[in-house]
């Protein structure tokens, strides 16, 4: 299932909390080098899908492969950088500097009973530099603005040299004027550093000119394809995606998009 450059393959995944279905037969592939936005309204199961991908929730049905390996046997978690939504609401009084927070991203990569080496320290500084915060490295994280704090969490995710960065609603709590530069930074990470990006958001408008692929979901996956395809969709149809009983597009659309000739929608 999926070619060898597929970083994530989600195959027929469903999930339910007690009696409520949150995810139904999700089929989705994330190719190396792409910048995918998963969009959907609140309660559409986006966060649940991410938790499954990160191994925070156990699969109930279906399969997930990460870097070609079944998630149950996957061990190389440092290849996956994760920036949670919670990063916006963390304890801002926590007494840690930017440098210390970013260093914590290396914890599992360095391993138990081992200490940071010079080369690790270099990596931390590099990651802080790549999000443009070097001058703040010795500040307590609580002293920074919301947008800067979010950059710190990106740096923490970047420091372990991940091949994919998963971001859950990263611009919640970031003021409007900084959102643009935030996405510009993401674009830079994707294009210059070749980091695959998976972004979960409810705001399609802000990302549509930056991402390469879009997936729309509301419990089911309603659309998955390249951004141009997505933009050809009638915006009235779009609002339908936010409804419950729409199943316009087939689910097995997942990994066909790179053969597409356009006009699929």
């Amino acid at each position: 299932m999926g070619n060898k450059d597929s970083i994530i393959v989600i195959d027929d995944v469903s999930y339910r909390y007690e009696k409520e279905n949150v995810l139904e037969n999700i089929q989705l592939t994330v190719e190396a080098g792409s910048f995918l936005a998963i969009v959907g309204p609140n309660g559409s199961g986006k966060s649940t899908l991410l938790k499954l991908l990160l191994g925070l929730l156990k699969l109930q049905s279906g399969k997930i492969k990460l870097f070609g390996q079944d998630i149950a046997r996957f061990k190389e978690w440092h290849k996956i950088g994760y920036v949670s939504q919670k990063a916006n609401s963390f304890n801002t009084g926590f007494p840690a500097t930017v440098y210390e927070v970013v260093s914590s991203g290396l914890t599992t990569k360095i391993g138990l009973f081992r200490f940071m080496k010079k080369s690790d320290e270099q990596k931390v500084l590099q990651a802080i530099g790549s999000v443009g915060l070097l001058e703040f490295k010795d500040r307590n994280i609580g002293e920074l603005s919301g947008g800067q704090q979010q950059r710190v969490f990106i740096a923490r995710a970047l420091v372990s040299d991940p091949q994919i960065l998963i971001l859950d609603e990263p611009t919640v709590g970031v003021d409007a004027q900084n959102v643009e530069s935030f996405y510009a930074m993401l674009e830079h990470l994707n294009k210059e550093l070749q980091i695959t990006l998976l972004l979960v958001t409810h705001d399609i408008g802000a990302v549509s000119d930056k991402v390469s692929h879009v997936a729309c979901m509301n419990k089911k996956l309603h659309f998955h394809g390249e951004t141009e395809e997505f933009e050809q969709l009638d915006m009235k149809d779009m609002s339908l995606y936010y409804g419950h009983d729409v199943q316009i597009l087939s689910h097995d659309h997942g990994h066909q998009h790179h053969h597409h000739g356009g006009g699929h929608a």
């Binding site: 191994g55 925070l56 994760y82 919670k86 840690a96 927070v101 991203g105 914890t107 923490r156």
Partner: peptide, 9 residues
């Protein structure tokens, strides 16, 4: 600092 991140890593 971040229990969820600890789990995720």
């Amino acid at each position: 600092f971040d229990e969820e991140h600890a789990k995720a890593s």
